[in-house]
Amino acid sequence: MGFKLLSKLLVYLTASIMAIASPLAFSVDSSGEYPTVSEIPVGEVRLYQIADGVWSHIATQSFDGAVYPSNGLIVRDGDELLLIDTAWGAKNTAALLAEIEKQIGLPVTRAVSTHFHDDRVGGVDVLRAAGVATYASPSTRRLAEVEGNEIPTHSLEGLSSSGDAVRFGPVELFYPGAAHSTDNLIVYVPSASVLYGGCAIYELSRTSAGNVADADLAEWPTSIERIQQHYPEAQFVIPGHGLPGGLDLLKHTTNVVKAHTNRSVVE
Rank of each mutant, 00 (worst) to 15 (best):
Y231T: 00
A136P: 05
S162Q: 13
K91A: 15
L106T: 09
L47C: 01
L247M: 14
R76G: 07
G65E: 10
G246A: 10
S162T: 09
F63K: 06
V75L: 05
K102Q: 10
I58F: 15
G198E: 02
L6H: 07
E147L: 09
W220P: 02
G105V: 07
A200K: 03
M18T: 11
Y12Q: 07
Y231I: 03
V171H: 02
A21N: 13
L82W: 06
V11Q: 06
T222Q: 14
Q49Y: 14
V237L: 11
A200F: 03
S160Y: 10
A15N: 08
S193Y: 15
Y12P: 03
P239E: 01
K91S: 15
R120S: 03
L106Y: 15
I40S: 14
A165H: 12
A133D: 14
T14S: 08
V194E: 02
V132E: 03
T93R: 00
E44C: 05
S22L: 11
A133T: 13
L195P: 05
L247Q: 12
T253K: 02
D183F: 02
P107G: 08
Y135N: 02
L81V: 12
E203Q: 06
A192M: 09
T109S: 12
G53F: 08
E172C: 03
A218K: 09
Q229W: 13
T207K: 14
I84H: 00
A218E: 13
A25H: 11
S27I: 07
Q103F: 12
L47Q: 05
V28I: 14
N184A: 01
A111R: 04
D85V: 01
S223T: 13
I84Q: 00
S31F: 08
H260W: 06
S62Q: 07
A136C: 06
P232C: 07
V171M: 03
G148V: 05
L6K: 12
A136V: 04
I238L: 06
R76I: 08
N255L: 11
E101Y: 11
E225K: 12
I186V: 12
G32M: 06
E233D: 12
V166I: 10
S38E: 10
G245R: 03
S56Y: 15
S30T: 14
S139H: 14
A178Y: 07
G105S: 10
I50P: 03
R141E: 03
A19M: 14
A234W: 01
P138C: 03
E267W: 09
F236S: 09
L47N: 02
T254V: 13
D125H: 09
Q235N: 13
P239L: 04
Q49L: 09
G246L: 05
V121D: 03
D164S: 13
K102N: 12
G105F: 05
T134Y: 00
D119G: 04
T109D: 06
N92D: 03
D214K: 06
Y175R: 00
E219L: 08
G89Y: 06
D119H: 02
G122Y: 07
V75F: 02
N184V: 00
N184L: 01
T60M: 15
I74A: 04
A165D: 08
Y68D: 05
V194R: 01
G158V: 05
A179E: 04
G105Y: 07
Y231K: 00
V187N: 03
T153K: 11
V187M: 05
V166Y: 11
P69T: 15
V67L: 15
E172N: 04
P244L: 09
E172P: 02
D64V: 08
